[in-house]
Design a protein around this nucleic acid. Structure first.
Lengths: 347, 347
DNA sequence: CTGCCGCCGTGAATCGTTTCAAAGGCATTC
DNA sequence: GAATGCCTTTGAAACGATTCACGGCGGCAG
């Protein structure tokens, strides 16, 4: 009932506390008979290690702190899941914090993690990282930037080439005959959004006769997507784009809902639609959504890998920058408009 | 750079360690001038409290362990969010674990929480709870059961009256003229599912001329919902139900997608559809989904409340069982079939 | 028989914070 | 001037696991 300590176990087993600790941590140093006896004592007393004492001695905890921008975005949930699985293999625990794109919340989690002497931090920074990260550096807490490239060579990072992803998406739209393309995304301050747009621009620039319109949103949510969809529908059919590239799937699903609910612009016949992230909901949408897949679980997995390696290094001089390539996933929402054999578009 | 301790701060400020601790924890006991000096020292040395040492002394941590069945279900995310917010007010941290309905994973989280000497545990048990909970009891770890009623008076619990919820949903379908109702949900082993079905049965039983068909699923996911939707569509129109009550919104959205994608059974004209949980996606669906709302954030909030109260009580004898009532949310997916003034159904 | 080596086991010191009994300082009161 | 009381500060003890230099013991070689 009351909490048992190694001392109680030692007394009950007729050995010293040092031996109990050895049974727990280096059983090879203890004779089988003694191990037996100690474990019996642990069992009958219901002894459970006190993690705080262990950490105090060790100097750092066996937890990893992770901070993401939005827990309700399945992409981040998937990244976290990947990180958690890999962490579990290393007997590390993942502490998940949600910054909600708010710098203050981010800071308060970082403070907490500092007090906890976490093993390391996985961070998708809210905005400009420099100031806050400076501090982590000084404390020598291993830190890996997630889903964010950086030219800063004092950190490791795991990211996806968003410029390439944007290019893939728009190239696909152009290749399937679309010409008037709208990019939907925002706020422009998010690096991810800016990069995807840059990729889109590149694809449009290299194909004569295509044009790109940019529709800025306030956030990457379903609701914002619906607003954009309604705005598009309000235009005359001729003024509408014939394809929409949304900066993430939540936006794309919002656009899709607006277009198909009000029903006057069919997807993909009149407007093709492609999103980004390839979240599970994408394939389950009313019109299955084309998207650009990021290897979300792998990102989390890799981030923990880098973190563990960096934490083990004598000095943190093994900064690595892993950049994954995104992958195009084609589904019904970007099927090309049907072309009859005589070359005219069918209805 | 190297970690600073209270001792360093004390030396630098020319006071004793006790005083530093008092500045940190009971500033009212310390003269303003001293506070000033100590805080300056903390600032210049970059001192950060070591949480492990603090916990060791305190005997228990300031974390709450929470285990949910499925982190990708927005309902549980919302509950967790509510719990986290309330915990933050109490300066407690929420550790979120995902059992994925797997008893082993649940156990391993419980073990972890024990070692951490968590303040308390919030648990939505996987199956039969008795054995594992016995142990928490013996250790005296305050525990609150979440989204699960229990007759066990050794625990507090926070739940929603699922029988009432099922009744609300089907009563509404019946009241709007539906007669052949299908209940979609499973596995039947989940208490939540069984209760909602019981409520549905009650509503049907009290209205002559109505009938209830039960379609069992393997899980409460979008994919399972689509399967069911396809099965319904495969029937001749006369053999189809005229309303579907799904045990949660994910299922309902799957059904909706199947029905509206294949397009031969319109919602709500031919088949009304209602879900359960009222997740955010429900209102944003192609046909906005009627649902039964559970006060998810409030559930989390209340669970933490009970936990805190129980943890503060000298002996854990203040077990409470809070049961919330669900609320019907009517949207387009259950609009009654239009009736013309002359009494015939319009097309 | 002595000396050396390995194997097991020992127990005091340590991590950094909080707590608490006690002491110091100062002013007010008789 | 001494006694009293309040306010502030002190410093050692405690929390519980881990570590490490050391000691006991048995066996084996010389």
């Amino acid at each position: 009932m009351a909490s048992m300590s190694v001392r109680d176990v030692a007394r009950h087993a007729g050995v010293s506390v040092g031996t109990v600790s050895n049974v727990l941590n280096r059983p090879d140093k203890v004779s089988p008979a003694t191990i037996e006896r100690v474990q019996a004592a642990i069992e009958t007393l219901g002894f459970v290690r006190n993690d705080a004492a262990r950490q105090l001695r060790a100097g750092r905890s066996r937890s990893i702190g992770m901070i993401v921008l939005d827990v309700s975005n399945p992409f981040f949930t998937d990244v976290a899941r990947g990180a958690e699985d890999r962490a579990a293999e290393e007997r590390l625990t993942l502490l998940l914090g949600n910054s909600d794109e708010d710098a203050d919340r981010e800071k308060s989690y970082l403070d907490l993690f500092e007090e906890q002497r976490v093993h390391g931090v996985l961070l998708t920074p809210v905005g400009d990282e420099s100031a806050r990260l400076e501090r982590l550096l000084r404390r020598g807490i291993p830190t890996v930037l997630v889903d964010r490239q950086t030219d800063d060579d004092r950190f490791s990072s795991v990211s996806v080439d968003d410029v390439a992803g944007g290019y893939l998406a728009v190239r696909h739209l152009v290749d399937t005959g679309r010409r008037r393309i709208a990019f939907v995304g925002g706020p422009g301050g998010l690096k991810q959004v800016a990069d995807r747009l840059a990729g889109a621009r590149k694809a449009v620039a290299e194909t004569p006769g295509t044009e790109l319109e940019v529709v800025e949103t306030e956030a990457l949510t379903v609701l914002q997507g619906r607003h954009v969809g309604e705005v598009i529908l309000a235009r005359s059919p001729e003024a509408r784009p014939d394809a929409v590239f949304a900066a993430n799937d939540l936006l794309a699903m919002g656009v899709l809902q607006a277009l198909s609910m009000l029903g006057s612009a069919r997807v993909p016949e009149e407007i093709a639609l492609i999103g980004y992230d390839d979240i599970d909901f994408a394939s389950a949408a009313v019109v299955p959504l084309s998207s650009v897949r990021q290897p979300s679980a792998l990102i989390g997995h890799t981030a923990v890998d880098l973190l563990v390696r960096e934490a083990a290094a004598p000095d943190g001089f093994t900064h690595e920058h892993v950049v994954f390539q995104p992958e195009l996933v084609v589904r019904a929402s970007t099927a090309p408009p049907l072309i009859a054999v005589d070359g005219t578009a069918s209805s």
